[in-house]
């Protein structure tokens, strides 16, 4: 599934076919989720999701430019800036989160976890704008 996704995505991004891009991303995301359900260890899963997210982001950005500005002008500059900064931000977020996760896991009570989860989801519902 993942291989199929990679193949489709590679084709889409090389030849600029937008209709092959979305299924490719969907396949990749599906394989990441499947891997998660089957119990892949968190660091690998995070890395895989990070890469898929980056691929999605860069692809979306690129196709957005093509739609708005056209294919003729050179867009390497803003694509590079965008790709680099996206990678940086996502990587920083994921690393920070994973650090906290690795630091606090083990030996906590299930009740605490439940209370936190209930609290965050309730807050999300309440503060949704």
């Amino acid at each position: 599934m993942g291989a199929l996704g990679v193949l489709s995505l590679a084709g889409a991004l090389t030849f600029g076919v937008e209709s092959a891009y979305a299924p490719g991303i969907a396949l990749l995301a599906g394989s990441v989720v499947l891997a998660g359900v089957l119990g892949l260890t968190p660091p690998f899963l995070l890395a895989a999701a990070f890469l898929v997210l980056l691929a999605w982001d860069v692809g979306k950005h690129g196709f957005g430019i093509a739609r708005e500005v056209g294919r003729e002008p050179s867009t390497f500059r803003i694509e590079a800036v965008h790709g680099l900064s996206s990678a940086l931000v996502y990587a920083a977020g994921a690393t920070l989160g994973y650090g906290i996760y690795a630091g606090v896991t083990g030996g906590r009570s299930v009740v605490a976890l439940l209370a936190l989860l209930v609290g965050s989801v309730a807050l999300l519902f309440a503060l949704r704008t």
């Binding site: 606090v104 030996g107 906590r108 009570s109 009740v111 605490a112 976890l113 439940l114 209370a115 936190l116 989860l117 209930v118 609290g119 965050s120 989801v121 309730a122 807050l123 519902f125 309440a126 503060l127």
Partner: peptide, 19 residues
């Protein structure tokens, strides 16, 4: 919901802090 969320979150933090 807001009250429930805040209360539950506080309880969680408390439990993590003093198991």
């Amino acid at each position: 919901l807001l009250v429930v969320g805040l209360a539950s979150g506080l309880v969680g933090v408390l439990l993590v802090a003093s198991p």
